[in-house]
Structure formats: structure tokens, C-alpha cells
């Protein structure tokens, strides 16, 4: 039994069958990559997992509980955090304020009317936020407006915000999209470090094969809304079915 069990999930948009019959199991404390050509249904699948879309058929169980029909914030509180393709952070707030919000969300749940207590008095929360910033090398930017940071910094801040919630499953949607090679390698190192330091399951959707093969322990290849193969990276590289799905794309070769 994996921490995430996806069974017979199907989703249709009008005439388009975005997800056919997806069965997928993600083992606890593993790094699982989901790859596939454009239009394979990767993003649709991700949106199903976080509660943005409800599938027409099938079930999605996280740690024995169904996530279907729950809102994104409820699913997040269950222990699934999502990193977006373009970093979603609170651009108008400072870096430290960005960091405080997930810390409060972890401690107080989805709503708490603490309108009279001062933030400055919450030593444990501030300490945690500062600690997270330090571990991501962002401490010297704590009073900066987060919108004015570089893209790489925004990405690290977003990952730090997700980690502050101590999720059991971290979903990454093309975390290195649009990054230079050096930044990409930094992100790979960061994710490896995260994996080594904590008990966390990472599911990653990625185009960049360099990232996938540096990180993943298992890979699922999606094509036209159905999983084609699932295996360890070594076996995926030369798999004829995968080559077929990616025909014309040189990335796998």
C-alpha cells in the first residue's frame, strides 16, 4: 500500500478524454516522477490530487482517506503540499511574512480568529519561520518584498513555505521550468537534500529528463491520459513504449 493510491481515475472535458483509466500507487518516502509528452494528462492528474478538479470516475486515497470532494485547503491540511509551475507566493508581503503564514496554518488549522494577539508575541512561530529561511539561505532577504526576488529565490521560498507545513506528500509541478541549467542543478540538489533530511514523499511532474533521472526512484510514463509504463529509471530509458510515446522528441535518447 502506497501513501497515495490512485484507482481507475478518469476525467473527460467535453469530447476530450483527459484521463483514461489511471492506476498509480506512490510508495511512502519515495521520489516518484510522472512524465509524459504534452497533453498526456499530467496537469489534470495533479489537479485531481489537490482538489482543483473532481474526476468522473475512480478513487484517490491518501493515507487511507479519500481526497475526492475535498477542497484544496482541506487536502492541504491532510498533508499534501503543492509547488506550482510558476512560483505562487504572497508577492505583496515580505519574505518573513510569507514564511509565517504556513507556520500559522500548520499550528492553527484552516481558520483561527486570533485578531487581537500580536504576531511579534508568537516566539515559536517566528523561530520556526526564521529557521526555515536560514535552511534555504533566504535569511538575509527576510525583510525584502518577495515579489522583487529572483525567480530562483521565489522557487526556494515557495518550497520552504510548503515544507514549513511538514507535509507527508510534496507535489512539484515542473519545478525547474524556465530555469537555467545552473539553477536547475541547484534545485535538484535542494530536493535531494530535502529528501535526505526528512520523511517525505515527493511526487514530481517534469519535462526535463535530466531532473527526472537525477531524482526519481520510480517513474510513471503517461500518454494520452493513461499510464504507459511504471518502472525504475534505468528500465524507463530504453523502453520501446516510452520511445514510441516520445517519438520525435529527442529528450529520451
Amino acid at each position: 500500500m502506497g501513501i497515495l493510491e490512485i484507482k481507475n481515475v478518469g476525467k473527460r472535458f467535453g469530447g476530450l478524454q483527459a484521463l483514461g483509466d489511471v492506476n498509480l500507487s506512490i510508495a511512502e518516502n519515495s521520489v516518484h516522477a510522472i512524465i509524459g509528452p504534452n497533453g498526456a494528462g499530467k496537469s489534470t492528474l495533479l489537479n485531481v490530487l489537490v482538489g482543483k478538479l473532481i474526476p468522473d470516475t475512480g478513487s484517490v486515497m491518501f493515507d487511507g482517506q479519500s481526497v475526492l470532494g475535498r477542497t484544496p485547503y482541506e487536502i492541504n491540511q491532510m498533508g499534501i503540499s503543492r509547488v506550482f509551475q510558476t512560483p505562487e507566493i504572497f508577492g505583496n508581503l515580505t519574505v518573513i511574512e510569507n514564511m509565517l503564514i504556513p507556520c500559522f496554518a500548520k499550528r492553527d488549522g484552516s481558520f483561527e480568529l486570533n485578531a487581537i494577539t500580536s504576531i511579534a508575541g508568537q516566539k515559536d512561530i517566528i523561530e520556526k519561520a526564521e529557521h526555515m529561511l536560514e535552511s534555504m539561505n533566504l535569511a538575509n532577504k527576510r525583510h525584502m518584498h518577495s515579489a522583487s526576488m529572483s525567480r530562483g529565490d521565489k522557487r526556494r521560498l515557495e518550497i520552504a513555505m510548503c515544507l514549513a507545513q511538514e507535509p507527508r506528500l510534496l507535489l512539484l509541478d515542473e519545478p525547474t521550468a524556465g530555469m537555467a541549467r545552473a539553477d536547475t542543478n541547484n534545485t535538484i540538489d535542494l530536493l535531494k537534500r530535502i529528501k535526505d533530511e526528512r520523511d517525505i514523499t515527493i511526487a514530481i511532474i517534469e519535462h526535463d529528463m535530466h531532473v527526472v533521472f537525477s531524482l526519481a526512484e520510480r517513474i510513471t510514463v503517461l500518454a494520452q491520459g493513461t499510464p504507459l509504463v511504471e518502472d525504475v529509471p534505468q528500465n524507463i530509458k530504453g523502453h520501446p513504449k516510452v520511445r514510441e510515446a516520445y517519438l520525435g522528441e529527442t529528450a529520451v535518447a
Binding site: 489537490v50 477542497t71 484544496p72 485547503y73 492541504n76 503540499s81 503543492r82 506550482f84 505562487e88 507566493i89 504572497f90 508577492g91 505583496n92 508581503l93 511574512e97 509565517l100 503564514i101 504556513p102 500559522f104 496554518a105 492553527d108 483561527e112 480568529l113 486570533n114 485578531a115 487581537i116 494577539t117 500580536s118 504576531i119 508568537q122 513555505m161 507545513q165
Partner: peptide, 20 residues
């Protein structure tokens, strides 16, 4: 207050707040 911070976060990025 933390409540005030959340209100400012609504203005800044509602999507992120939901996924937090």
C-alpha cells in the same frame, strides 16, 4: 495580528493561501 496577516495574504495571493 496573525488574522491581519491572513487578510493581507488574501489580497496578495488567494490561490497560494488556499494551497497553504
Amino acid at each position: 495580528s496573525p488574522f491581519g496577516l491572513m487578510l493581507r495574504a488574501i489580497k496578495a495571493n488567494k490561490t497560494r493561501l488556499n494551497y497553504t
